[in-house]
Design a protein around this nucleic acid. Sequence first.
DNA 1: CTTAGGATCGCCT
DNA 2: GGCGATCCTAAGC
Length: 194
Amino acid sequence: MLKSSRPAKPIDFNAPSEQVARRLIGAIFTVDGVGGRIVETEAYDRIDPASHTFSGPTPRNAVMFGPAAHVYVYRSYGIHWCLNFVCREEGHGAGVLIRAIEPLTGLDAMRQRRGLEPSRLLCSGPGRVAQALGITHGNNGMSLLEAPFHIEAPDEDYPLATGPRIGITKAVDVPWRFGLAGSKFLSKPFPKEA
DNA sequence: CTTAGGATCGCCT
DNA sequence: GGCGATCCTAAGC
């Protein structure tokens, strides 16, 4: 049996966000050729008190109630943009927040947008990812499967770390944060394995 | 190393 | 009117 490398099967976004969030770890994501390997995600569900969708459809979260594999962008703390991939679970909107990327391509563009030399701080955090990839509200509702976006499923199995989600005040114990174990590009370390 | 505070605005109560 | 699915900087230990 050959190890690791195998053909990449497309990621199915018509699935529970928790499952999609796991499968996205290791995927290659680019915007106009700028991007890298997804190393950290969080799942948010329709019946999840921490989710924007919990209280039902509003103008802001409308995209999350639309078709899967689209992009939901919202403004965070009045300053930052945050990027999500829409999922579908039994017809109910859900999403995956992209929290960190290992920069691989378009480093010049990222450095320019972030005003930083390439480092672990370039794309390590949801606001930083959006800034480095040039994502704004203008991308809200766009298909993830069409230009300028490109997503490629992981080509091997990556060791997964799990833990509670960051920066929320409700459902704080739900372990729906996922990461590439040992990656230097995580926004924060994961709690030590029990 | 850790903690504290400010920036800034769309959305919901 | 209050509060974030955040980030940055400065100050304290």
